[in-house]
Amino acid sequence: MASSMLPPRTAQIRLVSSHKEVYEPDDDSFALVDALLADRSNLLEHRPALCMEIGCGSGYVITSLALMLEQEGLDAFYIATDINPYALSVTHQTLEAHGVHAELINTNIAQGLENRLSGLVDVIVVNPPYVPTPEDEVGAEGITSSWAGGENGRSVIDRILPVADHLLSEKGWLYLVTLTANNPSEICLLMREKGYASRIVIQRSTEEESLHIIKFWRDFETKEDEEKKKAMADKSASTGIMEYLLGQLPQLPFWRSSDSNNY
């Protein structure tokens, strides 16, 4: 594909709208957009028809994704959801200021979309509420919903993962922001059981937190491996399971290195 010589376009901070109840772009948002930029040539080849952001906040990420793809003539359909109505107003303004469009839906994760959108989404981006907090802060009104993640910051992430699996197309990709406290390797194992391979696109430590942006994609080998492993585990008596699992440890490829494949 002919690639333009211009630097990739992303949302400009001065054009990102704001509201006191809406999370402003911060290190995690920048890391997610940087991950999309780092994976840009793959995304252009991927030619997504339908892209989605779950929890769009200020709109910085979905706007950047739309700009990045549109610049190369890729015409996709964008959907962004947020539980916070103010976030959608702000996202709307941010999109308009950059001359791009996304369909905005005020909902919890993807409620209302799950039946009909199943298996259709080629790219999902999520910067979830990942901060460990008391469970009762999860889903609170306003800006709290943008960061309150419950125990280990995993409450909302663990609800998003099966939804993402359900919505993603056969060739679909998920980009997810996680914090070390979220136990990203365990998230990768959970997704592995659903047949996804994964790799860290960006790892970034700030004074406050250590962020990983992880990309997931369906991988038939991973799925076969998982099925074999299950069958083996079913066969072996309980005494054999530990031995078997220990034997598998060195080859668990849930942290794939980027040069081992084309993703």
């Binding site: 539980i83 109505p85 959608l88 107003s89 709307h92 905005l104 839906i105 005020n106 909902t107 919890n108 409620q111 209302g112 979309l113």
Partner: peptide, 13 residues
């Protein structure tokens, strides 16, 4: 009724 205001449907239950 799920209201639509300023082009944004509110599907929250």
């Amino acid at each position: 009724r799920f209201p639509v205001n300023k082009g944004i449907p509110n599907m929250l239950l």
